[in-house]
């Protein structure tokens, strides 16, 4: 019933807000998704359609592109890891912004949970955890498809799954933190404004070298760029110390996101 022995991270979180039962939130989400399985399944098809349309269609015009180590790879093999990263981002952002905002302000779902021993930290971790589980399933399915199309060049690709989970965790945490500041649905235009250009320009569809230097620097600051480069390195088997830098980027995102989200939820829910 009381919070488990507190590791360092928990000390940044509001006291008495964690019952150690975030798992029950995920049980709830799983139960609810049985009713909305279609929406659940649709999340898998989006990256698949992009892969077919762009990889096969556009790929026949584009031909080969230079991979991370300069060796030419097929266009489909180039964009597939990008799409994997982007779908991890999109799923996590959607779950942690629109869905959370609705539950927070309209369904008053979290208010009902706070009448139980659950606290805001359970809520935040439970929702992020569910977004992760979902993202993990999509990533597994997409990686299988990539393998089926022969787009995986290295056993390192197995690590793309945990990497996708970390990416999803980071975006879910930041998304939830951002949602806690939103006041109306209009504010969600900002989410689209952030996510769509990131999807298009973060070397998802073409390499960084096509941009002028100043734009390259901008792109290099974007989180999705680091996700795409991380995935591409793993699925093509070009693994170096640089990947650790990308990983670090997401670890920082996770910590910042979780701390802000939990603190803000605490203020929003425990008025």
């Amino acid at each position: 019933m009381s919070a488990p022995a507190a590791p360092a991270l928990w000390r940044l979180l509001p006291a008495g807000s964690y019952a150690g039962r975030a798992r029950m939130m995920m049980v709830r989400s799983a139960t609810a998704s049985r009713r909305t399985w279609l929406a659940f399944v649709s999340g898998f098809f989006e990256p698949l359609f992009y892969l077919l349309a762009m990889g096969t269609g556009l790929g026949s015009l584009v031909g080969d592109l230079p991979g991370p180590d300069g060796q030419p790879i097929s266009y489909a093999a180039f964009i597939a890891p990008g799409l994997l990263a982007a779908s991890a981002m999109n799923g996590a952002v959607f779950d942690s912004t629109y869905n959370v905002f609705f539950k927070l302000h309209y369904a008053r779902l979290y208010d009902s949970m706070l009448a139980t021993p659950l606290g805001p930290v359970d809520v935040a971790l439970g929702e992020i955890g569910w977004a992760l589980l979902r993202g993990g399933l999509y990533a597994t399915a997409f990686l299988s498809v990539m393998a089926g199309f022969g787009l995986i060049e290295s056993p390192w690709a197995l690590l793309a799954l945990p990497a996708a989970l970390l990416v999803a965790f980071a975006f879910a945490a930041i998304g939830m933190a951002a949602t806690s500041f939103m006041r109306s649905w209009q504010d969600f235009d900002l989410v689209t404004l952030a996510v769509l250009p990131m999807f298009l320009f973060s070397t998802t569809f073409y390499p960084l070298s096509v941009y002028p230097r100043w734009l390259q620097i901008v792109v290099e600051c974007l989180p999705l760029y680091h996700a795409v480069e991380l995935m591409r390195g793993l699925t093509t088997g070009v693994v170096g110390a640089g990947l650790l830098g990308h990983l670090a980027y997401f670890v920082v995102m996770v910590v910042v996101g979780v701390v802000i989200a939990a603190r803000r939820l605490d203020r929003l829910l425990l008025r």
Binding site: M1, A19, R21, M24, V27, R28, T31, S112, M113, T116, P117, L118
Partner: peptide, 8 residues
Amino acid sequence: EIYGRYFG
């Protein structure tokens, strides 16, 4: 049922 689970 789910509400009961929140109580552990």
